[in-house]
Nucleic acid binder design. Structure first.
Length: 114
DNA sequence: TACTTGACAAAAG
DNA sequence: CCTTTTGCCAAGT
């Protein structure tokens, strides 16, 4: 695997790791923040391989642009939803309630604020 | 090497 | 409002 690719993975993983507790973001937003090198699809790939990350990646805080938990089948059982609920995120019908309010924009809020 | 898949998204019909 | 199309790009087979 090329180093360029690994660097891109690292950027994505780091960004995901910086998502505040109890907040969520989207694949597209991450891709936009990383730059033109990335695409929303690529972010999905990076997360599917987040077990390669040298640190913990809270992938459950990343949902699709509708607030839908499309990545849930990559977690054992119902863990994605359970993890979010542990962070006081309410989920109904595989969708994040208050998604608009809980959405964390990595471009604007990227590390502090809330 | 070629074809298919997919943790996406935006636009068109 | 729902389905299809298109762009995207690495990974798996």
């Amino acid at each position: 695997m090329s180093n360029d690719l690994e660097e891109l993975y690292m950027k994505i993983w780091e960004l995901v790791a910086s998502i505040p507790y109890g907040r969520v973001t989207t694949y597209g937003a991450i891709a936009t923040t990383i730059g033109s090198k990335a695409s929303a699809r690529f972010v999905g790939i990076a997360l599917s391989r987040c077990y390669l990350a040298p640190f913990y990646v809270p992938a459950h805080r990343v949902v699709n642009r509708n607030g839908l938990l499309t990545g849930r089948h990559h977690f054992p059982g119902n863990q994605m939803q359970e993890l979010l609920e542990n962070e006081n995120v309410v989920i109904i019908d595989n969708q994040v309630v208050n998604f608009k309010e809980l959405f964390w924009n990595p471009m604007i809020e990227s590390s502090d604020k809330i």
